[in-house]
Simulated assay, not measured.
Amino acid sequence: MSEFTHVTVTKAANIYFDGGVTSRTLIFPDGQRKTLGIMQPGEFEFGTQAAELMEILSGELDVQLPGAEGWRRIQGGESFEVPANAKFTVRVLSLTDYCCSFLS
């Protein structure tokens, strides 16, 4: 899906790591939440509360997921899931556009 319709967009940006990662929150009529964002090149550690599906729309990064040995390369058009209440690290190799869906 290349666009979302009938959503509420939160005007204030979510800004992390001194602007290295930014996003906007979308809220759907059924209460589902997603964020659309950009990650600048760098290494960032995130913590989750809800399980997440990270769809990489463009760009390239390496991700280290909880319990995984080593890093996994993710490119535009690919995705990965992160469990609830976990930490994961990304090494962003090029400007990366993403969509994060909160699964629980």
Rank of each mutant, 00 (worst) to 15 (best):
I15A: 05
T10R: 13
A12Y: 08
S23C: 00
Q32V: 08
V21P: 07
T25K: 08
G42F: 15
T10Y: 12
Q40W: 11
A13S: 15
E45G: 05
L36N: 07
K34A: 14
I15T: 05
R24M: 09
F28S: 13
M39V: 13
E52N: 05
G42D: 12
G47N: 08
I38R: 11
P29Q: 04
I15P: 03
S23H: 00
P41G: 10
P41S: 11
T22E: 00
F44E: 10
A50N: 05
T35R: 06
K11L: 15
E55H: 09
R24Q: 10
D30Y: 00
V9W: 10
S23Q: 00
P29L: 01
T48F: 01
I15Y: 01
Q32S: 09
E45D: 12
G20V: 02
F44R: 10
P29G: 01
Q49Y: 06
G47I: 12
F44L: 09
Q49T: 09
M54D: 14
M39P: 06
I56S: 04
G19Y: 07
K34L: 15
D18N: 14
K11N: 14
V21T: 09
R24F: 06
K11G: 14
G47K: 08
V9R: 07
V21H: 06
K11T: 14
G47R: 09
F46H: 03
Y16G: 09
Q32A: 03
D30E: 01
F44P: 04
T48C: 01
Q32L: 06
E45N: 08
P41A: 12
L57T: 02
A12S: 14
M54I: 12
I15L: 03
G20Y: 02
F28I: 13
I15N: 03
G47Q: 13
Q40S: 15
Q32Y: 09
E55F: 05
E43W: 09
R33C: 04
Q32C: 05
Q49W: 02
F28G: 13
T22A: 01
Y16D: 08
Q32P: 02
N14E: 13
T35D: 08
I38D: 08
E55D: 11
E55Y: 04
I27N: 11
G37T: 14
V21R: 05
F46A: 03
P29H: 03
M39R: 12
G31W: 05
G20I: 02
E43Y: 08
A50T: 05
I38F: 10
E45A: 04
D18M: 07
G42R: 11
K11Q: 15
S23L: 01
S23P: 00
F46V: 04
P41L: 13
Y16P: 05
G42N: 07
I38P: 07
A51M: 03
F44V: 08
Q40T: 15
P41T: 13
P29K: 05
D30C: 00
T22F: 00
Q32R: 05
K11M: 14
V21D: 09
F44M: 07
T8Y: 09
T22L: 00
Q32F: 06
G31T: 10
T22S: 00
T22K: 00
V9S: 08
Q32N: 09
A50Y: 04
Q32W: 07
F17E: 11
A51I: 08
L36C: 06
F46E: 01
E45R: 10
V21W: 03
G31I: 03
G19M: 10
L57V: 01
V21M: 03
L26F: 04
L36A: 07
I56H: 01
